[in-house]
Design a protein around this nucleic acid. Structure first.
Lengths: 330, 330
DNA sequence: CTGAAAGCGCTAACAA
DNA sequence: TTGTTAGCGCTTTCAG
């Protein structure tokens, strides 16, 4: 089996503590360092993180809970986070809860049992019960994208309101007045923010908000297609539409495609996220893109800071800005 | 701090071993079971997997190494695998090596140090050195998508050759003769297979293979766009093109879009993977779709079997079939 | 069926 | 600086 520190001690004739302090940056005489190093090579020693974890009560594991790993928005953030944390010796365990509250709870349990050192979550549920458990045990929590009331932890958010407001403003500039919005589920934080942005944009330009122009999807492709269909059926007078997440953008495009609706002649269109898809569409789509890479960086930075001992610093909320990319769909 | 088994023993008046065997499915008198259960609730006991891992030499951790988490093909497989393994108490640690051999090696080291119980990998490097280390330590390895010579482990593959052959055959049916292929890097297993399929399809129908109709991308969006541009420039006589992965399909579409090439009037097109994108495109794309969900299931099943003790069973290679989805791009 | 005791590989306090 | 020692929380003999 694998060599242990004991073996190193025997091999070098040194004490166990010396070996241990060698690995933990303690003071070891140069000569002994060399001895240890050759012994490591000879015995092919690799430190056992499990044993270390038992002792120190640190697993160097970070739990991640997200609604869907194959939502590109999630995947991009997670890759970035994982990459940075790994450079600091932390492994991330990602659980995809399929936007299901029960599964999310299970995932939190799962991580808790595993004694992760910290938690990163894009929450599905809006009650912060599961998160508090981590905080009570002094394990840092960073929430992505959706703020949760009553839980005192770091957050990385997007300025959803502004994102939508700017997009809608752009449409109004082009003299559109009957502008549809394909929103997310009305109980999700980001959806609410985006709807707020829609309202504000219209009001600021003195336009009326007509609720029948807002159609809620569920952030999935088929949900987006259905929401688009609903708008098309009930509001044939609509001249422009804003879709407020990537999967629904895809769904809406599928529906428009099937009906043969021409963009932008018959309908102006603004989508969300995923530049590549926007470029690959015909015509090229105008979209609002979220800064996933920056979000990932922010998340990693926040949790690392807490893990490195800043347990008491004040809670931080980072709000990042989206980017508007002009295509040919307006 | 959290309660331990010792606390349970004290609370119930039972011995430590009894508590332990309760958790490990041993025989415990009904009465004592009840006692233990109430104590668990009272003390809010949660088993410490770290300690357990130290003792049993099992971490219940599975290392996953993939080239890019935000390649949808990877993400879909991984989600499925993660979901299944979690139901069996295994956590997956995913490392994205960004298609970089050095990073891949680091990821393997990382997992090895962490003492994962098994490894799932979609390899970037073609030498199996890193994998052998796991096998030598009796840790099961499952390779996804790309077979590696000289490493004796389970594999889940796709019938790449047939996938491309069928697509090309479909184009030939429609009287295309100058058919372009946008292939992947020529040193990657799947690319080679796909190129083989291209050759076979042409030969079987008595057509000549013309190397200038094959353009190698690198499985990225920009690579796909460049490869498409190259073909368009050097072979204006080409009447159809087959793109052999999703990201390059996206890239190719971007390029075609920018040049205003009309599909299918000026060029027939077959893409790869991601049905949703195919439906959302205008016109709808014909594509070859890989069975990601089934692949995930197969991977999980194979590794679970090995983890459950079938260490010596013969190496299994599963080859799954792709699906051809007809759109309006031919 | 249950209890006592040893030990997994490591860290950390203390003594030397 | 280095060695000794006592656990971290659990599983697993071995007796009872």
């Amino acid at each position: 089996m694998a060599a242990t520190m004991k073996d190193l001690a025997r091999e070098t004739g040194l004490g166990l503590a010396t070996i241990s302090s060698y690995f933990n940056g303690g003071n070891v005489r140069e000569k002994n360092k060399e001895k240890i190093e050759t012994a490591i090579k000879k015995l092919n020693f690799e430190i056992n993180e499990v044993a270390r974890g038992l002792k120190t009560n640190h697993t160097k594991l970070i739990g991640v809970v997200i609604p869907e790993l194959d939502m590109i928005f999630c995947a991009q953030i997670i890759t970035e986070v994982e990459d940075i944390l790994r450079n600091y010796g932390y492994a991330t365990i990602v659980c995809d809860c399929r936007s299901d509250e029960k599964r999310e709870e299970e995932a939190l349990d799962f991580h808790f049992h595993r004694r992760v050192d910290g938690l990163i979550i894009m929450p599905t549920s809006t009650n912060g019960k599961g998160l508090k458990r981590f905080l009570e045990h002094n394990k840092p929590v960073v929430v992505i994208d959706r703020k949760i009331d009553g839980v005192d932890c770091d957050c990385v958010l997007v300025d959803n309101e502004k994102a939508v407001k700017d997009g809608i403003a752009r449409l109004i500039e082009e003299k559109h007045e009957k502008i549809g919005l394909i929103a997310g589920p009305s109980d999700i934080y980001t959806s609410k923010e985006r709807i707020k942005g829609y309202h504000k944009a219209l009001k600021e330009r003195g336009l009326q908000v007509d609720k029948s122009l807002i159609s809620c999807g569920d952030f999935t492709i088929s949900g987006g297609a259905k929401a688009m269909a609903r708008l098309l059926d009930t509001r044939p007078d609509m001249t422009a539409v804003f879709v407020s997440n990537y999967e629904m953008t895809l769904g809406a495009m599928i529906e428009l495609n099937e009906r043969g609706v021409k963009i932008p002649q018959e309908l102006s269109f603004i989508g969300y996220d995923n530049k590549e898809f926007a470029y690959a569409s015909n015509p090229q789509l105008s979209i609002v893109a979220q800064p996933t890479k920056e979000m990932g960086k922010a998340v990693a930075q926040l949790i690392l800071k807490r893990l490195q001992g800043d347990g008491n610093g004040k809670r931080k909320i980072w709000k990042l800005e989206t980017e508007f990319i002009e295509g040919k769909s307006i």
